[in-house]
């Protein structure tokens, strides 16, 4: 499969948007080369602020700038953009309902060699618990472009979770991004796999493997975690009666939990949540870490056999 860089696409899209929308202001906290906001800074220096290593100041300042009528993007690694500044996001951004877009370019085990200190595995849980905040996890570079364009034109707080490495292209070019709408990448009758980010292509591989044991699995890219496409989640759960979720995030409070919240209350369905289980990450290459933490297509097959009683 063709691969593309999500954060590279983020940086490129920011520059494109910056050309036409003079209202966009971008903030970073000494990670501009990594988050790819650097090019925006070089082109539109007067609308770009590297705040240095002051993430708390960056978030509240972003809110203050936004309260003067600007659209403000603030970027860092997810661990420094959510957990480190949770109260600033809660109060300055969400309680004020300020027009701030938080774009994290390095998240989950996908951060790789930097290890546990830099691998946020709880950021989705934190961000989706906040009123006014919407949480989006693009699955590839195509979707990243659509999402960044969308959030730049929609008032209010967003958390967009990207990933350091390149990901296979899985999304179609058609259709604009809409929050609360998911993309069914593969249809199936026996099982539905909801996945996000780097796990989407793995879920698609799993669907191929499952054909060998005569299981037709549907695969859904559930990029809009909040708001969630409840209609599609319920429809596919009711059709297939078996649900698996997989994410590069803790099993507590992430996308799987969000799906369980919907299904347990509206259409209880047998399900398995796959993610990182009550553990920090560690150093290693992302693919090695996905093997170690059992976030693989083979894991999905194994769990499918268990819930399908095979």
């Amino acid at each position: 499969m063709l691969k593309g860089s999500l954060r590279g696409q983020y940086g490129k899209t920011l520059v494109e948007l910056g050309e036409v929308n003079k209202n966009i202001v971008v903030l970073d906290a000494d990670l501009a080369k990594s988050t790819k906001t650097l090019e925006f800074g070089q082109k539109f220096g007067y609308r770009y602020f590297d705040m240095g290593l002051s993430e708390q100041d960056m978030i509240s300042t972003a809110a203050g700038i936004a309260l003067t009528g600007k659209t403000v993007f603030a970027s860092s690694f997810s661990v420094f953009l959510t957990g480190r500044v949770f109260d600033q996001v809660r109060q300055s951004v969400c309680y004020n309902n300020s027009n701030v877009k938080l774009v994290a370019t390095h998240s989950g085990l996908g951060v790789g060699e930097d290890g546990a200190t830099h691998q946020a595995l709880e950021d989705i849980a934190l961000m989706r618990s906040l009123p006014n905040m919407r949480v989006i996890v693009p699955a590839d570079s195509i979707e990243t472009k659509k999402v960044i364009e969308y959030v730049s034109g929609e008032y209010g707080p967003f958390y967009v979770r990207l990933i350091r490495g390149d990901l296979p292209v899985v999304c179609s070019e058609e259709n604009n991004f809409e929050p609360g709408r998911s993309e069914v990448l593969i249809d199936g009758d026996d099982l539905v796999i909801f996945a996000i980010g780097s796990m989407v292509s793995k879920a698609m591989e799993a669907a191929e493997l499952l054909k060998n044991i005569s299981v037709n699995a549907a695969v859904v890219n559930l990029s809009s975690i909040k708001p969630m496409d409840e209609k599609t989640v319920i429809k596919l759960a009711e059709k297939t009666k078996h649900v698996i979720t997989m994410e590069d995030h803790s099993i507590y409070g992430g996308m799987g939990s969000a799906v369980a919240e919907v299904l347990s209350q509206r259409s209880p369905t047998k399900m398995k949540i796959i993610g990182v289980e009550n553990s920090f990450g560690r150093s290693g290459k992302p693919e090695e870490l996905y093997e170690l933490y059992k976030l693989t297509p083979e894991r999905i097959v194994k769990e499918a056999e268990i819930i399908l009683g095979k």
Partner: peptide, 13 residues
């Protein structure tokens, strides 16, 4: 602490 940063942001904006 947060209001002070927001005020600074408003001065920038």
């Amino acid at each position: 602490g947060q209001g002070f940063s927001m005020a600074s942001g408003m001065a920038i904006g």
